[in-house]
Amino acid sequence: MTANQVVFLVLAAIAGLAAVGVVAFGNNPVRAALLLVLNFFVLGFIYFTLGAQLLGISQIMVYAGAIMVLFLFVIMMLQLHQRSPIVEGREGRGVLAWLFGLALAVVVFASVIVPLMSVSGSPIGDEYGTPQSVGRVLFTTYVLPFEIASVLLLIGIVGSILLAKRRL
């Protein structure tokens, strides 16, 4: 086992455990959010190991730094952590969910991941994830989707203000 593999396994273990924690700590939304931040943070590092520098740092900036702060803000503003935890009745649903999840995992693993398991190495140069190369493609080939995404963000801004304001 090489050093890179060890690094990946450690990062993956943290990310995986944090993901489980998000669901397991669901009765305490602040802890769930915190674990999700950890997951996103570590995911940023996994992106770095994939050579995608720009996206790794964007992951940390957008998800860990902005979106999750928004989540925490809403949790604390609605005082969700002080409400009595929702009693999880209907245990059958939980068991069923885990069963279906397991089934999905097994099916996808067997049909998609097993055939690709042995693939390693890549012909892609390391500079494929730098801001320069990403920016060049984003503002030439993908300029129309980029503009549409910015319009979508604008609509999101307007929509969230519309929803949040009591009266305009």
């Binding site: 669901v23 885990w98 999840g101 991941i113």
Partner: peptide
């Protein structure tokens, strides 16, 4: 860095996170 980490490992992590999120 990743030349010796197999693709399957990343996909497995992705699948795991997806399933946990879905559940």
């Amino acid at each position: 860095m990743t030349s010796d980490v197999p693709l399957g490992w990343f996909l497995t992590l992705g699948l795991f996170m997806f399933v946990v999120g879905g559940v």
